[in-house]
Design a protein around this nucleic acid. Structure first.
Length: 781
DNA sequence: ATAACAACCCGGATA
DNA sequence: GGGTTGTTAT
């Protein structure tokens, strides 16, 4: 062990580390060395005689857990760190529940349903109730149920809670309680828990079985919680229960970075900590080691617009650094192009690698224009988020076989693969099985097992028996072979691997490779020592429960490859990058149009902006576009209100054109470039510029980012551009297009209600087919 | 049964 | 625009 581990800490950090017994709250500002303090504290506890087996450390992401474990190991040197119980709330509780599930009537190998599984179950139930799933949208219902569970409200209470019922009535969806009830029963019948159940049932378990609570209270004598500001009431109550005896609870958080209220998190948990534990020690980490003064000052001033923060003054010894660059472009595509150009330029000018850059956006859908522009410039990139590996269809299909092998109650998985690959068990048979299972109150699997008895005949009976025999053969393997051998056998017996192998299309090839990758991951799982806790559980059931809790970001193998990263701001929390582009800073997008109705919502958006800013170590670009495509049509947004909240001193607005942005803010016509607005004004105030590409402007002595290619498709529409009725358009006419500029209609085809014009745009890339219902054209003459 | 095509929906962030 | 679901044609 490093003897001098305390020397590497500043005074505040040391204070936090040295506190051993009793409740402790560490208020850790962005970039203040939070992880270092947490890991050093764990090491310090162990140094002072605390057994690793008695330490529980909970995080929100697998990545944070992994990192913490590695760093503790590094400080301690030995292998003792292996005995620590470090993991995400969900994965730790899944493991504990796995050990205790029988008490709740669940199989120990219960299935964990991800969001898609859960919504699919909900859709089934909604249809069973003869409700319209356009009105009772599974997504909406799921969110309601999720919120209920996160505040520890079961179906009974939900249906009898006056306030909740009022809400559902007002939303004209009075039957959500009924759906919740059926959903809970269905999940139980299926032997399945969804993500929220992992918290909810954990609470129920501890509350209902004092001996279980007692056991874990004495096992986990020291508890640490990372990102405490993101805990929800369920997590809060569980922590409180577990820590009630020893009260050795150490929470770390930053109220300024609370961005998960949609997941039920309540900022109250951190604000109230001192009231919950009256002898709590509070330590504030206020020195930032990450960012330049410019960046930090901007961040501080932005967050100061929120009310009711824990008082703190984040400061840094780092140098002033560059100003923050504010960039306005005409369209989302130009925004993408600007960012790609700037990355290329910065790589040359300041010798950055691709891995030094991150592009942060509010919504995943924004990634498209950046992907395109990066690809065009041959800059390698990777998008984080979106579909996780385990959400791909071919993987879910394969995993469904494994799930049904472990847990035959799992109806969702059964339905998924009962006729995949096709084996002659069609819709009618499945329906019949379903009805029988409901009538006799048994699982579908039990119906299939007793198919003959239930009157199935001929080819159908044969097919069913074949299926049952096959699944049983997998189950028989479990005792004698490891998870990998079982999985390989599943691939063979079902013919899935062969079938994918024979598919020579590009997608088929990718699917085949994905399944191979799945098999590899199972192999790796069975062969490597356990990551988390002392439970050396290498079973297939354990594997299945873990993978559902993995996200895209946990695909770490490409972690340090030299690529530009693209992700949502949410996904970037806890990370840092030398150069950050925060994009799409427009009203209705960021802040989201859905979160501007209450102060609470808006403040959370602002905290999100704060998180985005504080990811940057040395350079920060903020970009926004006058107009962008959203759901297929062009919309125009004003610059984000957050841009007004930044101190002028540290901002370089010359990229955007200082006049232009101020005009947009003060504009009475409201639009970024409405009639007589934006572009006109912009022209007037920047006489020397070419109006076609405002993002390339360079006002000061500072060198401009010089995009390598000229503005090919950049066209600034005529002031007052408004589309004309397509009905009046005929070949020969001169028209104007928002992007392609002026052109001539040379041909017309298609039905009267869906006419397609052929238009030649001399400056906009030649001949194009324009669907008149979609693209807006202005008739010039 | 599958492929090709039309209709429809989406409002967001995640373990 | 893009992804998914439903419908129709072969």
């Amino acid at each position: 062990m490093k003897a001098n581990y305390l020397d590497e800490l500043n005074e505040r950090q040391r204070e936090a580390v040295l506190h051993i017994n009793g409740p402790l709250m560490i208020v850790a500002g962005a970039g203040s060395g939070k992880t270092k303090v947490l890991t050093t504290r764990i090491a310090h506890l162990m140094r002072n005689g605390v057994d690793a087996f008695n330490i529980l450390s909970l995080t929100f992401t697998n990545k944070a857990a992994r990192e913490m474990k590695e760093r503790v190991e590094k400080i301690l040197g030995g292998s003792e760190a292996r005995n620590l119980y470090i993991g995400t709330f969900h994965s730790v509780f899944a493991r504990l529940l796995r050990a205790e599930a029988h008490r709740l009537g669940y199989p120990n190998d219960f299935t964990i349903y991800d969001t898609d599984d859960a919504k699919s179950v909900l859709k089934t139930i909604i249809n069973e109730l003869n409700l319209d799933d356009k009105h009772y949208k599974p997504n909406f219902v799921y969110n309601r149920i999720s919120a209920a569970k996160n505040s520890l409200m079961g179906p009974e209470e939900y249906q009898h809670d006056y306030y909740v019922q009022q809400e559902d009535m007002r939303a004209n969806r009075p039957l959500i309680g009924k759906i919740y009830d059926m959903y809970a029963k269905r999940c139980f019948k299926n032997g399945a828990m969804d993500f929220d159940d992992l918290l909810f049932k954990m609470y129920v378990l501890l509350k209902s079985f004092p001996e279980v609570l007692h056991k874990y209270q004495h096992k986990f004598k020291y508890i640490m919680i990372d990102e405490y500001q993101d805990t929800n009431p369920a997590q809060y109550e569980i922590i409180k229960l577990l820590g009630a005896v020893n009260e050795n609870i150490c929470v770390v958080g930053d109220d300024a970075q609370s961005i998960y209220s949609f997941r039920g998190a309540t900022i109250q948990n951190i604000l109230q900590f001192e009231k919950d534990y009256d002898d709590a020690r509070v330590v504030k980490l206020e020195q930032n080691y990450r960012s330049t003064k410019s960046i930090l000052n901007v961040a501080n001033e932005v967050i100061a617009h929120n009310k009711g923060q824990i008082e703190k003054n984040l400061w840094t010894d780092n140098q002033d650094g560059d100003t923050i660059k504010l960039v306005r472009t005409n369209t989302d595509n130009e925004e993408g192009k600007f960012v790609a150009d700037t990355i290329a330029e910065q790589k040359l000018r300041n010798h950055y690698d691709n891995r030094d850059f991150v592009i942060l956006y509010r919504t995943n859908a924004q990634s498209r224009s950046f992907e395109e522009s990066l690809r065009r410039k041959a800059i390698p990139y990777r998008i984080y988020g979106g579909l996780s590996f385990y959400q791909r269809k071919e993987i879910k299909d394969f995993v469904a076989y494994l799930r049904i092998t472990m847990n035959t109650r799992d109806e969702e998985s059964l339905k998924r693969i009962i006729n995949y690959p096709v084996r002659g068990i069609g819709k009618t048979t499945i329906e019949k099985t379903l009805v029988l299972s409901n009538d006799h109150n048994i699982t579908m699997w039990e119906v299939l097992e007793r198919a003959r008895e239930f009157g199935f005949k001929g080819g159908t009976l044969e097919a069913i028996d074949g299926f049952v025999t096959m699944i049983r053969s997998f189950q028989a393997m479990l005792g004698k072979h490891n998870a990998y051998d079982v999985a390989v056998n599943v691939g063979k017996s079902t013919n899935i691997v062969k079938e994918l192998f024979n598919d020579k299309t590009t997608e088929g090839l990718a699917r085949y490779e994905n399944v191979q990758e799945l098999l590899n991951s199972i192999k790796e799982f069975t062969e490597t020592p356990d990551e988390e806790g002392e439970l050396l559980d290498k079973s297939l059931g354990s594997y299945l429960q873990q993978i559902t809790l993995l996200t895209d970001a946990d695909n770490e193998n490409k972690e340090d490859s030299d690529v530009v990263k693209l992700m949502t701001i949410h996904a970037a929390k806890g990370l840092e990058f030398p150069v950050v582009f925060t994009v799409g800073l427009e009203e209705t997008l960021f802040p989201s149009g859905m979160s501007i109705n209450t102060r609470e919502e808006l403040e959370e958006e602002r905290r999100l902006f704060y998180v985005a800013i504080t990811r940057a170590k040395s350079r920060l670009w903020l970009t926004y576009a006058n107009s962008r495509y959203r759901f297929g049509n062009l919309v125009q947004n004003e610059p984000s209100r957050f841009l007004e909240e930044m101190p002028e001193k540290f901002i370089d607005r010359s990229y955007a054109g200082g006049g232009a942005i101020r005009n947009a803010f003060g504009s009475t016509n409201g639009g970024g470039w409405g009639a007589g607005g934006g572009s006109n004004m912009f022209d007037r105030m920047q006489k020397k510029t070419t109006p076609s590409s405002p993002q390339q402007q360079n006002q000061g002595p500072r060198p401009a980012p010089k995009p390598a290619t000229g503005p090919v498709s950049t066209h600034v529409p005529t002031p007052g551009f408004a589309p004309d009725d397509p009905a009046g358009m005929e070949p020969g006419m001169q028209v104007e297009h928002q992007k392609f500029g002026f052109g001539t209609i040379t041909g017309m085809e298609g039905a009267p209600n869906n006419r397609i014009a052929t238009v030649v745009f001399p400056k906009g890339g030649g001949e194009k087919k324009i669907m008149l219902n979609y693209a807006k054209l202005r008739i010039v003459r």
